[in-house]
Design a protein around this nucleic acid. Structure first.
Length: 550
RNA sequence: GGCCCGUUGGUCAAGCGGUUAAGACACCGCCCUUUCACGGCGGAGUCAUGGGUUCGAUUCCCGUACGGGUCACCA
């Protein structure tokens, strides 16, 4: 018997590989166009690191007029979770990372290089595995899990490199007849690559991010087809990225040590290898040290966390871009209004060691992003967020849309907008005192410098009696505040007070603070004039009376 | 442990043979301001370590320490 017959015995129904080579022709793309792919496995929530990688995939494809595709790597049925694919789709959609090709919903896909669900590509992998077997480049292995484990222990005890290679690759030299016999006897087996590599030889690899790296060649006879007939990651990666004509493989740097294997696989299969870019992981600080953000321990590892917190997706995107290329910040300052789509991302500007994911900085980015929103946009976004996470806020926003928009519009849309909202979940706090039912329930007034009740009441009485007129424009209102201050023995300008503090009881700021606290029960609020305008005459009057009569 | 990779202020980082070692976040101070915020100005704070190479090393080489990744029929 020869290899050809062995291959036929193992995969009797597999097609010739020429069939697939013809089925998937070269892409007709312009010079320099990059084909990238996001290839997650649906094993749980989408990790912020995966999002980071796919953001880079998307940008690279887009800025080169290439193609960004989504391939789902569902070859491990044991780890697969329900709704995993939908979660991936939702994350991409939320972050505006539409794919040009690949899986687009739980049931549909678009593009000519599919299927894009690895579980549906079983016959393709098997065809290539069969081809390898028929050429003597792969072979069935009958070792049991226990045998392998035992081998590993032996190797460890003897302090030699563990693995299935060289003399340890027992089934490699079984002989075709023995293999056939075992198969005919119904013994279970998997398919291994017959690695042509030698550990004492080096392979050079040029990584788009990490530069030149040298590794020992791979000499492990790794598994390519598992007992369930599905391929391992490595084998699927080589076949899929070849057949889908992926030019640039962007992935987390936990893969970098597999590069020798992958390049070998491409060579054995007769494929041209893609270019690789290995991205450093996002880290988190813990006890003064750094560690990779962990799915299990860190809520912020899940992209859904940002959604829940109300941190806008575009803020997360900006922050991630900033980690990717630190010149992004400079670009943003020079182009405050441009879409991040216009930022040109460069792989060689990416850092090689893991960056700490800094929530404080993210929030700062988020403040800036939100400060540029129009009042209508922030209303819509807040409402959308509230519908999902805050029923009370939702009611408030919906009850009187115009009123809410006016509140959200305070000091917004101007050259130097307020930057006190970092996430949509801050909205409630920032507007609730504008609503009587909530205001009335709020706790006591906390004054600053002027806290004597008699004095406060006098200020209020004078204000209502001589100065309060809701139809005043801002300048008039302010001038009247100054007059009021003067009348009561306070300086009408802070400067005057600073010059001769002993001459006055205080200054205009102290008077304003009294009014602010009485009207809002807050010491920190945006522009008081605007607040009063939005509340209107009755409410302002009522709030003042509330205090006077309490 | 083997193999890869890395280490610039608290954090993200630019620089990569000669620089007062950029910038951003955070922090502190001052100014502006009716408060807060914004904005403006200023401050403190860094090249892991030991050896080389060199007229000169943050930048190049070697060692050490520390950190990360990886060594599955998981991706």
């Amino acid at each position: 018997m020869d290899y050809k017959e062995l291959a036929d015995l193992i995969f009797p129904n597999a097609k010739e590989i020429s069939y697939y080579e013809e089925l998937y022709p070269e892409r007709n793309l312009s010079e320099g166009a990059k084909v990238t792919r996001f290839a997650p496995s649906p094993t749980g929530f989408v990790h912020i690191g995966s999002l980071f990688v796919s953001l880079i995939d998307k940008k690279l494809a887009k800025q080169s007029n290439g193609t960004f595709l989504l391939r789902v790597e569902d070859t491990d049925q044991k780890r697969e979770v329900e709704g995993g694919v939908q979660g991936i789709l939702d994350a991409l959609k939320d972050f505006g990372l539409q794919v040009d090709e690949g899986v687009v919903s739980e049931k549909e896909e678009i593009g000519k290089y599919g299927p894009y669900l690895q579980s549906k590509r079983k016959e393709i992998y098997q065809a290539y595995a069969k081809d390898l077997i028929s050429k003597g480049l792969a072979y069935p292995c009958f070792c049991t899990a226990e045998e392998i484990e035992e081998k590993r222990l032996t190797q460890e005890n003897a302090k030699i490199r563990p693995g299935y290679y060289g003399v340890w690759a027992k089934c490699r030299n079984l002989g075709i007849d023995n293999m056939v016999e075992k198969i005919n006897n119904g013994e279970k087996y998997i398919i291994r690559l017959k690695s042509p590599g030698r550990e004492d030889k080096k392979i050079k690899h040029h990584d788009l991010i990490r530069g030149n790296i040298e590794f020992p060649e791979n000499d492990q006879d790794i598994v390519i087809i598992k007992a369930d007939g599905l391929p391992t990651y490595h084998f699927a990666h080589a076949i899929d990225d070849h057949l889908m004509k992926v030019t640039h493989v962007i992935r987390g740097d936990e893969w970098i040590s597999s590069v020798p294997l992958h390049i070998q696989l491409f060579q054995v299969l007769g494929f041209k290898p893609p270019k690789y870019a290995h991205i450093a992981p996002l880290m988190k600080e813990e006890d003064g040290g750094k560690r990779k953000i962990s799915k299990r321990k860190d809520p912020e590892a899940a992209v859904s966390y940002y959604h829940k917190e109300g941190i806008p997706e575009d803020a997360v995107t900006e922050y991630l871009l900033n980690i990717a290329n630190s010149n992004f910040e400079e670009w943003r300052r020079a182009n405050p209004e441009k879409s991040t789509d216009e930022f040109e991302l460069a792989l060689n500007k990416m850092g090689v060691s893991g960056a700490l994911f800094d929530i404080v900085k993210l929030l700062d980015v988020s403040k800036n992003v939100i400060s540029k929103y129009s009042k209508e946009k922030i209303y819509e976004d807040s409402l959308k967020w509230a519908k999902a996470y805050d029923a009370e806020l939702k009611t408030v926003l919906e009850n009187d849309k115009d009123y809410a928009i006016r509140i959200l519009g305070i000091e917004r849309g101007i050259e130097k907008p307020r930057k006190d909202i970092a996430k949509l979940s801050d909205i409630k706090y920032s507007m609730e005192y504008m609503y009587d039912d909530i205001f009335d329930k709020q706790s006591n007034y906390e004054f600053q410098k002027v806290s004597d009740e008699k004095e406060i009441k006098q200020i209020l009485e004078k204000y209502v009696e001589n100065y309060f007129d809701i139809s005043d424009d801002k300048q008039m209102w302010f001038d009247k505040m100054k007059d009021l201050a003067e009348e009561l023995g306070y300086a009408r300008e802070v400067k005057l007070f600073k010059k001769e503090p002993e001459q006055y009881k205080g200054h205009i700021g102290d008077i304003s603070m009294v009014l602010r606290v009485v009207i809002t029960k807050r010491q920190n609020t945006p522009d008081l004039y605007e607040i009063m305008q939005i509340l209107g005459k009755e409410k302002v009057q009522k709030r003042i009376n509330n205090y006077l009569n309490k």
